[in-house]
């Protein structure tokens, strides 16, 4: 029995006459203390998948289970970091994190809580901005607050929806290490959405591609058995690493082309006829005449 699983899950949006089936027949088994990265194109349904795992949405078909029990509502044991950060704009950075900490660790004394919050603010390098409101922060800073809030809840399962997409390379590398450290030391289970193949390779045990929507589903996983700790400086030289990256990239390119081909096929075939020229006597331009000559000759 898997720790966290999606069992033949389908979900769509909209009324029957205007429906988009976003996810169809999705299966995923996440083992305890596993690090799974889900990779896929924009709009394919990754965020929908995460909110199903969190319990914020219920599947129309199939079942989401944790410890074998159906997930019916969200809860702090499955901490989710939203793609749009969802910070409370009237609270400061400290206040936003404190709200979550207060709820998850009600027994903490005031001092303990303060120390806990400050530790996570420090982790994402936001100590100087601790008293600022979200509207006074840059996009990347907000993303880091959101990450800190989720990690500060110390959830069993950490669900991260593109957690580092807005950050510069250096901050990003630091936080990747931090997430992997927390995952390893505290023995958490992580499901992370990303669209960066290198990031997935550096962090995950398994990379699962989501096919192009609509009716997206999870494809076969790539198991990343690179030894840990993984050194990002080796990513350009290490043959295993390069090999995996090529395979995943090729697979994604394939998905993309397949999707394009599908779309071309979907188009109605038009009979290959040339319109009758009703205005044969009309003066045609030089270029038009040239073009006509061309096709006539062919």
């Amino acid at each position: 029995m898997a720790f966290l699983e999606l069992d033949h899950v389908s979900l769509g949006f909209g009324p029957p006459n205007d429906r988009t089936e976003v996810l169809k027949d999705v299966n995923l088994q996440v083992q305890e203390n596993e690090f799974v990265a889900i990779i896929g194109f924009s709009g394919s349904g990754k965020s929908t998948l995460v909110s199903l795992l969190a319990g914020l949405q219920q599947p129309e078909k199939g079942c989401v289970r944790m410890h074998g029990q159906p997930v019916t509502e969200p809860g702090p044991e499955r901490g989710i970091m939203f793609q749009n950060y969802s910070l409370l704009p009237w609270l400061s950075v400290h206040g936003n994190i404190e709200l979550a900490v207060k709820q998850v660790f009600p027994r903490y004394s005031r001092a303990e809580r303060k120390a806990h919050v400050e530790r996570y603010i420090e982790m994402v390098n936001l100590t100087p901005a601790a008293d600022k409101k979200p509207s006074e922060l840059s996009g990347g800073m907000r993303q880091r607050v959101s990450l800190a809030r989720t990690l500060a809840m110390q959830p069993e399962v950490i669900l991260l929806d593109e957690p580092l997409s807005a950050l510069d390379a250096l901050t990003r590398a630091n936080l990747q290490d931090e997430i992997v450290r927390i995952w390893g030391e505290d023995r958490r289970t992580v499901v992370m959405i990303t669209n960066d193949v290198d990031e997935a390779l550096l962090m995950a045990d398994r990379v699962v591609p989501l096919t192009m929507g609509p009716e997206a589903t999870l494809a076969d996983a790539f198991t990343i058995d690179l030894p840990r700790p993984r050194d990002r400086t080796l990513s350009n030289s290490d043959p295993d690493f390069k090999h995996l990256r090529n395979r995943i990239t090729q697979y994604l390119i394939g998905l993309n082309e397949e999707a394009k081909a599908l779309r071309v096929d979907e188009r109605k075939e038009m009979p290959d006829v040339r319109p009758v020229d009703f205005y044969a006597t009309r003066r045609t331009s030089f270029w038009e005449r040239l073009r006509n000559n061309d096709t006539d000759a062919a």
Partner: peptide, 11 residues
């Protein structure tokens, strides 16, 4: 989104 935060925190 704010409601979602409240739901996850089980306020």
């Amino acid at each position: 989104d704010h409601i979602n935060v409240a739901r996850v925190l089980r306020l």
